[in-house]
Structures are given as C-alpha cells and as structure tokens.
Design a protein around this nucleic acid. Structure first.
Length: 279
DNA sequence: AACGCGCCCTGTCCGC
DNA sequence: TGCGGACAGGGCGCGT
C-alpha cells in the first residue's frame, strides 16, 4: 500500500540507480496499467532515446522526468503504484522475485527498470509540460511542505461533513495520505476517525497537522511500511510496520491506555482506533 | 456538488 | 485437501 513515505523511498532509491540512464526500448506486457489515452506503442515511441534526468514524487505518485537530446519538450512519466505496484531496477538482488512485470523499460546500459504490479491497480501517465500543469493542479497540498500549516488544515477541513478518515484519503485535498498513515495520525492526534471533518477545532487540526508530519517523517526514515506488498526500489521491505500503533491491530491492547483497539468500517474501508484515546 | 458505494484485480488466510 | 468467502485499499465512475 504505497503512500507518500513509500513513494519517497522508491524515488530516492531510483535516483541513485537510474538518474541519467537512457531508455532504449519499452516493453508493455500488461497494457491495463497504462492510462486509457496511452497506447503501448506511443509510450515506447515517445520514450526511446530519452534520458531519465530527474526522479521525484508528487503525493503518492512517482515522477520520472525524461529529456530528449534535441529541443523536444520535457516529458514526465507519472507512476501511481496503486496497491501492489513496484519499481525495481533489474540488477537489484531481489529483482528475480518479481512475478507480475507489467512494463519493462530497457536501458542503454543493459539494465532494465521493471514495473511489477500483481493486481494491476497501478496507472502510468505520460505528461507534456501543459498536461502536467493541469494534472498537478488536481492534486492537493503536500503535507510536508511549508504551505501546509495548522491553519491551512483547519481551513480545509472546515467545509466538509465527511468522516475525517475519509477526508484525509482524498488526494485533491492533501496529496499522499493513504489508509495506514491516516489512521496512525488520527490516533496520535487523539481524534476519532468517524468525526465529521468540520467538527475539528483549531487545536485539534493543529494536533492532526503535527501527527501527520511526524508519522510521515518517521515512516520515511524507516523506508516505509510493508504491510503485505510494498517493496522499495531494490525490492526490499520497509521497517515501519512494527511502529504502527493502531493500523491492523484490532483486538490488541492500546500501547498508551491499554484499552482494546477496534476496527470499524467507513465507506467500505477499515478504520482502526483506540476507544479510550480517541473517544 | 459533495459524498458514498461498487468495482477493478490477485493473493492470502480462515473456517468447514 | 480443497473450496468459498472475507479482506487488503487506491482510484474511478456513477447515482443520489
């Protein structure tokens, strides 16, 4: 379940390994991971000969900047990893473990960048500067940026009646939060995930703001959470899972107050909470 | 128009 | 041993 910390970890790994590599050919093995307006042949034709000049992240999406030796405009490949997407370089020790390679980017140096996705919930989009500008505008604020302040969070939440856990998952509001870190942050802020977003006081919004930043930064430091499927850019698991305080821990005692942690369902998706700390 | 729901997928786990 | 069902949950299309 790659969220912002997992995407960040993968971007850092790939940055070290494939920055300045040049794409030779692209092989699409499962076209359903490509955006509907991106036929495999077009992806291959447009990427051939391009240099991977920069690797970044926007929300939970990976962003590969691809430059051409002539004056062609820069292209950006956006990779949303969905639930089970992985981006691994072929010379990683664990690359042979990939069983569901959907797209293979063969590089001129003989290696390949492999996109593996068991469930094929992931999507790739290829953007021109113009289309990227529009796409970027659809994504919400970066939670680790300077623009994301307690006041900004309070202002954003103040107009929505949806449960705050659901609210946090909407990428148009804040970009990069998924179910794991939404639940973890709400626990640390002492806020019940079922509460309407607009019921949060300024103090509570400030606590949530602080919790989100702490949880995301800690998870980046731990190279992400491997709950079941996530792997980093070398195919390795993340180390944050043991640090989760509520996610996936229904029935266990709360580490803070000892009450039994609960699982509830909001919009067909699990939410986890401590009835003592988040009442 | 904001919001909730069902669907897309496959692998794993659990109960019978 | 095998099988059906629940579950995982990001994002999108649709109905309200």
């Amino acid at each position: 379940m790659p969220e912002l910390p997992e995407a960040d970890t993968i971007a850092r790994d790939l940055r070290d390994r494939v920055t300045d590599a040049v794409v030779a050919t692209v092989h699409v093995l499962h076209r359903d991971v490509l955006a509907p307006d991106l036929p495999p042949r077009r992806l291959a034709r447009r990427l051939r000969g391009r240099r991977i000049s920069r690797i970044g992240r926007r929300g939970k999406n990976l962003l590969l900047r691809l430059e051409h030796p002539t004056d062609d405009p820069v292209l950006r490949l956006l990779v949303n990893l969905g639930m089970t997407g992985r981006l691994v370089v072929s010379d990683s020790p664990r690359a042979h473990e990939l069983n569901h390679i959907a797209v293979r980017f063969d590089l001129e140096d003989g290696r390949s960048l492999l996109y593996d996705d068991t469930r094929r919930f992931g999507r790739m989009e290829l953007h021109t500067p113009d289309s990227w500008e529009r796409r970027d505008a659809e994504l919400g604020i970066e939670p680790l940026s300077d623009d994301f302040t307690p006041a900004a969070l309070h202002r954003l939440t103040s107009r929505s009646i949806t449960p705050v856990r659901n609210w946090l998952l909407d990428q148009r509001r804040i970009a990069g939060i998924g179910n794991i870190y939404a639940n973890e942050a709400l626990f640390r802020a002492g806020i019940d995930p079922r509460r309407p977003a607009r019921s949060l006081s300024l103090d509570e919004a400030a606590a949530l703001h602080d919790a989100l930043r702490t949880v995301l930064a800690d998870a980046i430091r731990a190279r992400g959470t491997t709950f079941s499927d996530y792997r980093d850019g070398s195919g390795e698991a993340g180390a944050y899972e043991p640090l989760l305080r509520v996610y996936g821990r229904a029935g266990e005692p709360c580490q803070r107050c000892g009450a039994t942690l609960e699982r509830v369902v909001l919009s067909n998706r699990s939410a986890f909470l401590c009835p003592g700390c988040q009442g």
